[in-house]
């Protein structure tokens, strides 16, 4: 492993350590604990618990042990894949997250690819010549200003209620026994609107990166040289400009992929789409703190994983990085 990758890995471990520490210490610094919860659980009137009960509750949750030992057993649990127990679902947090994971990852990644493809297409169309760019910039700025859940809400009203083309919520038709292709169409039908919102919310920032990269390359001397040589415009665009402009775009794709799951949260809430974002909303509603913490950890791990893969890829693409 080269020094570059080693240093990056060290910084990722630092982030992971920070996330674990946040998860562990947050509930311990903030007011409220299981004893108070138990003494007020029966209703609005607080119950006076005697000494033994309090001790028993503290012992049950391991709160009587030193903090370092508690942290140790928290880490040991994580190492075994034990993310905790969801209060709301009465199920292991790890399993809940794994069940919901594909519903977030697939639309988020698909939408990201679609929006970058669109950005590159529009970029070539408008940034390799002058004029007419407002046709992308104007709608782009407007789309970017509307928060995704606002956009989602409007699409929901227009395309699910006023003109009922798309389903209102969920990821598949309930109580249906569709199989094979029919069920795939059903799932795609449900995913269409969330997908559209995700594409719209990613498009403009992708376009801006494509744009600045294209404009930079367009003024390179070798492009001028190619023009002087009289090469056809399409060849110059594709082989001289686009190819060289794509590296920063690829880097940006990596960072957006890392944060794509976080951006999907509000969209999933609007469409009641059963991904992790929706799960975290359900956790908020039912004050399911272990679930919230597990989800936070899952999002962190996803970011670190994507960043690590991007680093490896970057190293194989750009030999200069390897020697640093």
């Amino acid at each position: 492993m080269s020094g570059y990758l080693l240093r990056r890995t060290a910084s990722y471990l630092l982030v992971l350590a920070a996330a674990l520490a946040i998860n562990f210490f947050l509930p311990r610094v903030i007011p409220g604990n299981p004893v108070e919860e138990a003494s007020s659980a029966s209703g609005s009137l607080p119950v006076q618990l005697d000494r033994q009960t309090v001790d028993a509750i503290r012992k049950h949750y391991g709160l009587d042990r030193p903090v370092a030992a508690q942290f140790g057993s928290y880490l040991a649990g994580l190492a075994r894949g034990d993310l905790g127990w969801s209060i709301g679902y009465k199920a292991p947090v790890g399993r809940l997250i794994l069940e919901r994971l594909p519903w977030t990852l697939v639309p988020a990644m698909g939408a990201l690819m679609a929006s970058f493809a669109l950005a590159v297409l529009f970029g070539i169309r408008y940034c390799t010549r002058d004029g007419g760019e407002w046709r992308v910039l104007l709608p782009g700025v407007l789309l970017e200003s509307a928060p995704p859940f606002v956009l989602g809400g409007l699409l929901l009203v227009l395309l699910s209620v006023k003109i009922p083309i798309f389903p209102l919520s969920g990821a598949y038709s309930a109580f249906s026994d569709l199989t094979g292709l029919r069920s795939a169409i059903d799932v795609a039908h449900h995913a269409a609107l969330p997908f559209l919102v995700l594409v719209a919310s990613n498009f403009f920032s992708a376009y801006l990166v494509v744009r600045s990269s294209l404009l930079l390359v367009r003024n390179e001397p070798y492009v001028l040289m190619a023009e002087i040589k009289g090469l056809p415009e399409s060849v110059i665009r594709r082989r001289y400009i686009l190819r060289n402009a794509l590296l920063p775009v690829a880097t940006f794709f990596g960072t957006r992929l890392a944060t794509s799951t976080g951006r999907a949260i509000l969209v999933e809430v609007v469409f009641a789409y059963p991904g992790i974002g929706r799960l975290s909303y359900e956790a908020v509603l039912s004050h399911d703190y272990p679930l919230l913490q597990g989800i936070f950890l899952a999002f962190t791990l996803w970011i670190l994983l994507v960043n690590f893969c991007a680093d490896c890829l970057y190293m194989s693409l750009d030999p200069r990085v390897r020697e640093v």
């Binding site: 982030v15 946040i22 947050l26 976080g262 949260i265 975290s280 703190y289 989800i295 962190t300 970011i303």
Partner: peptide, 16 residues
Amino acid sequence: MTIPRLPFIILLAAFL
């Protein structure tokens, strides 16, 4: 800057 922004905000807001 690496920690997931919105999930972290949600986590903190839920606890505070």
